[in-house]
Design a protein around this nucleic acid. Sequence first.
DNA 1: TTGCGAAATGACAACGTTGTCATTTCGTTA
DNA 2: TAACGAAATGACAACGTTGTCATTTCGCAA
Lengths: 336, 336
Amino acid sequence: MATMDKKNVSMNDVAIAAGVSLKTVSRVINEPDSVRESTRDKVHSAMEALGFRANFAARSLKLGRYGCIGVVLFHLSGGAVDMIDGIADAAEERGFALTMIKKRAGEKMTLAEAARRMSQLPVDGMIFNLRQMVDDFDTFEAPKDLKTVIITPMEHPTCSTVSDDQEGGARMACEYFLNHGHKNVYFVSGKKESLSSQCRMKGWRAALEARGIEPPEPLQGDWNADSGYAAGLVLADKPDCTAVLAANDCMANGVMMALRDKGLNVPDDVSVIGFDDELYKTIPNSILTSVKFRHRELGVRALNEVVAGIETPSSRSRTLVSGVLVERSSVKDLRA
Amino acid sequence: MATMDKKNVSMNDVAIAAGVSLKTVSRVINEPDSVRESTRDKVHSAMEALGFRANFAARSLKLGRYGCIGVVLFHLSGGAVDMIDGIADAAEERGFALTMIKKRAGEKMTLAEAARRMSQLPVDGMIFNLRQMVDDFDTFEAPKDLKTVIITPMEHPTCSTVSDDQEGGARMACEYFLNHGHKNVYFVSGKKESLSSQCRMKGWRAALEARGIEPPEPLQGDWNADSGYAAGLVLADKPDCTAVLAANDCMANGVMMALRDKGLNVPDDVSVIGFDDELYKTIPNSILTSVKFRHRELGVRALNEVVAGIETPSSRSRTLVSGVLVERSSVKDLRA
DNA sequence: TTGCGAAATGACAACGTTGTCATTTCGTTA
DNA sequence: TAACGAAATGACAACGTTGTCATTTCGCAA
């Protein structure tokens, strides 16, 4: 316990204590094989005794890189947890840490502003998580020396983007209905400004139009169960309504409850599909068929794209991560 | 657009371009008032023209601090989102960014290991989010030069801790039942290894014992609705069961569904309280009374504690953030 | 115009690492 | 034992900032 009171122990201190040169200490850390074993042991003991820890700033200054990826959270939702999880795991695997900043509630942050703030921080590249439109989306240009990947369903003119295939997922759900003999599909949307909701609606519409079906007026929801319930009450009165696609599971549940309260049975009278596959957590014996996106995979892809761009400057790319239809029993086969 | 191809633009480059000294450029950035306006303008133009961005590494090396707080996520749950949100907002307000690392799935990370990894990164202090027991919890000692705050319901011998008052929340819910004339309260727990579940159980037990009531055998759940449903089926057959406290809302919902399927009504036959107040998102017109914890506030407090400890080395402290009982109509008043 | 104190600016070292290149030490062979 | 090439080690500069202290310039009064 001969610990000194000196603020920070430097390599130089270790070198003196071990009776070797500064550079040898550096070598013990970075290329241990080039140092004789006896010397290495002396250095290690000295480091131990003094409690040496390499200085991040000095090291990065010399190396010209940080080993950190910046993550900008424009929006922090439930699915974001899994995405961050994927980013963090992939980062660790590649030897990177994460530096994170967040748009404050109420604040209006542009891409340029986010990039400016990030470039003051220790990062070699960055990931923007962007689920709503932002003013300067089309005009934004990323700093040339900072590979930038945007997680968003929109295509960007210059930056690489990664996204769930929300549109494809919605199309898949719709086609599932149609392939089961349904002649039409009603849609309950999420919040208007949400890009996810917009994409899901687009996919729904496309799937119907591809079969020459005129899409009915979509019902406006806000992601929560109550808005789904309200939509369900309306739908229950429509005799041609046999299939409902809700933009998330909570609203789907609201729809189902409303149908039940109106004396209708799911799936016998009306079939329902939701998104995100999370209802089973809250509802026992849940029967809801749901489109699930692999948020974790999304994060992994985004991180890998950034790291790839750091190692070998690459051009713009666009990655889509497909969704999966988790089948339960909320869709009736009308073809029988 | 006379942008150079030179890798990084340094203050020196700016100084030369502006025809001033290096130090003056530094002053323009750090103490603009000490520079004559005309000079300042010249420097600003040069910075603009060259695309100068201050080098984080050099700056931190000189200053001896990073302006970053490390966050270690041992566990990434739903509630963690709000907590991170609080940490991030508070950090920004205090002028700090976050550096994050995460325990990988399956990996067994000790506090010491986490601290070792963090201290290689650009951080001035750190926050551990720890919701399960870890081997070296009691023996862990934080690095002396890195203020460490642990978010956990357990008390730590040397580190500051911040926690929801889970035990108090459970007590509050229990007393709410008792004050409404209930003579006993059944409990459905979460996963065994979860500290939250353990604390909630402890509070439930304490509240009953304080009134001289022998707590019944708790029912083991796993946080999900299905386990709550199973518990509900068991409870429905117990004639003395008028009140059920479930360790989260999903299980509470499972309990309620089971009771309904057994022909019992909530709250007329049995009263129920949950935790986390999130059922309303998924269930329309939810009636579940629930104990809600302020996760965001938790994050804010943790961050503030770290920053305070950085500015003026402080001793160990313990912060409890109280919960709130969100009253709906799932509890019947038996006193009438 | 001169002189003076205050304001503005500059020269240089230092922060703690790693890269370059020179020097020392080692193990081998003649 | 001497000589040699390879392995191990060391001296010193450099990375891009900020702090210290010296120097120059400015505005104003005598």
